[in-house]
Computed example of a mutant assay.
Amino acid sequence: MKLFFIALFITAELFASLDSITSFDADFVQSITDEKNKTISYTGHIIATKPQNARWSYFKPVKKEVYINDYDVTIVEPEIEQVIIRRIESNFDFFKMIANAKEDSKDSYTAKYGDTLFNIKKSGNLIESISYLDEFENRVTIVFKNQKQNQSINKILFMPSYPLEFDIIRD
């Protein structure tokens, strides 16, 4: 469940600290390092628009689509032919949390949600990376590349798409 809040937080963070941005499009590498210093990296692409629309497309090592629309998160996992649909907590206030982010130094910020502290690095008006410890004490870092902002994005890209024969789990 925390993955959904992290994805939502990151999506919100892309916009809340950068008031002039209305859309965000970037490639990313997400690295997760465990307590034994073993790291797994995921590559993918994110597109997002204000206020709460995002699509995280994971390409490697497995394909997965994560759609965030208002109060729903839909995860499509083609390799296991499964779709998970979850409702987002109504008391999760993205923008209030972001408004409370503190600048640690030039282009470096921290924000807290629950027990998790997020470290955010920016370059100019763009977020370069976000890092945090997850609920298993893994170090997670997401680095963005090829960022584009304020481009028109077709809203259809945020509509979950999957074959009807996939198993659907509603949580």
Rank of each mutant, 00 (worst) to 15 (best):
residue 1 M to R: 09
residue 7 A to L: 04
residue 9 F to H: 08
residue 10 I to Y: 00
residue 11 T to S: 14
residue 15 F to Y: 09
residue 18 L to V: 07
residue 19 D to P: 13
residue 21 I to W: 14
residue 21 I to K: 13
residue 23 S to M: 02
residue 24 F to C: 07
residue 27 D to L: 11
residue 29 V to N: 15
residue 31 S to Q: 07
residue 33 T to V: 04
residue 38 K to L: 12
residue 38 K to V: 15
residue 39 T to I: 11
residue 39 T to Y: 01
residue 43 T to Y: 11
residue 44 G to E: 05
residue 45 H to Y: 06
residue 50 K to E: 10
residue 52 Q to V: 07
residue 55 R to S: 01
residue 55 R to E: 06
residue 57 S to T: 15
residue 57 S to W: 02
residue 57 S to Y: 13
residue 60 K to P: 09
residue 66 V to C: 11
residue 72 D to K: 12
residue 73 V to Q: 01
residue 85 I to G: 00
residue 90 S to C: 00
residue 96 K to V: 05
residue 98 I to P: 01
residue 99 A to G: 14
residue 102 K to F: 00
residue 107 D to C: 02
residue 110 T to V: 10
residue 111 A to F: 04
residue 111 A to G: 09
residue 116 T to P: 03
residue 122 K to S: 09
residue 123 S to R: 09
residue 125 N to D: 07
residue 131 S to N: 10
residue 131 S to W: 04
residue 136 F to D: 06
residue 136 F to M: 12
residue 136 F to E: 08
residue 138 N to L: 10
residue 139 R to V: 14
residue 142 I to D: 00
residue 142 I to F: 02
residue 143 V to E: 04
residue 144 F to E: 04
residue 144 F to Y: 14
residue 151 Q to T: 10
residue 153 I to G: 04
residue 153 I to A: 04
residue 157 L to C: 05
residue 158 F to Y: 09
residue 159 M to T: 13
residue 159 M to Y: 08
residue 161 S to D: 15
residue 171 D to L: 02
